[in-house]
């Protein structure tokens, strides 16, 4: 049988096909909730790609934040506010064109980026199997709190100290998200006429 099928490649192709297919389904679907469902499948397939690349942490993160959090909240919002049962969306022609242009530009950019990366060549099977699977969460955690793991071999102590951690940017992003959340909640508050104040006045 020789080499047979190289399973990681097979799964890579499978997951990327799923991700792309469901992404297209999102674009062509009209029902908001179905759209959300396709998006979940697409994002879950992307998470599969991460797992395949050995980035368990990022994969799980993708599942937890996008699928478990964002999309659930999206559907929750639709359920709470929809005027009728199944919300349909129609895209006007103008938006199609804008979307198409933006999409094409993005694809072109990604295409260029992908082919300018020097490692973008298939590695041999022996090489692939030789790559040891490293813990993925530890470097991230360490980088967040006290040091950049990618700079461990930096010989200069002072330089190493300077690149201490991502904690401050992380905190800034967190606070920013919190502000956005509060702002959204404020905007979502509907204004209604108070019956008591309206009656005498």
């Amino acid at each position: 049988m020789g080499d047979g099928i190289y399973w990681p490649t097979f799964f890579f192709l499978l997951f990327s096909a799923l991700a792309c297919g469901f992404a297209l389904a999102v674009v062509f679907s009209r029902n908001v909730v179905r759209m959300a469902f396709y998006l979940v499948m697409s994002l879950a397939s992307t998470a599969g790609l991460f797992f395949l690349a050995g980035e368990d942490f990022v994969g799980a993160m993708q599942l937890m934040i996008y699928v478990g959090g964002t999309l659930v909240l999206l559907i929750f919002g639709v359920m709470l506010t929809s005027q009728k049962q199944f919300v349909e969306m129609k895209t006007p022609a103008g938006q199609w064109i804008v979307g198409l242009v933006t999409g094409c530009a993005l694809v072109a950019l990604l295409w260029m980026a992908a082919f300018e990366t020097p490692q973008w060549q298939p590695i041999s099977r022996a090489e692939a199997e030789a790559v040891a699977v490293q813990p993925t969460a530890t470097p991230i955690g360490v980088a967040l709190t006290n040091g950049r793991v990618d700079q461990l071999d930096q010989p200069d102590e002072t330089l190493r100290g300077g690149m201490s951690s991502y904690l401050l940017p992380f905190e800034i992003v967190s606070v920013h998200l919190l502000v956005v959340l509060i702002g959204a909640a404020y905007l979502a508050r509907a204004k209604r006429r108070s019956p008591s104040a309206a009656a005498p006045g």
């Binding site: 709470l80 506010t81 929809s82 005027q83 909640a185 979502a188 508050r189 509907a190 204004k191 209604r192 006429r193 108070s194 104040a197 309206a198 006045g201």
Partner: peptide, 17 residues
């Protein structure tokens, strides 16, 4: 009027149907 400072308009929770 639907001005925000109209005393007859009160703020409610998130508007739902």
């Amino acid at each position: 009027s639907t001005l925000v400072d109209d005393p007859r308009v009160i703020e409610f929770d998130v508007r739902t149907d």
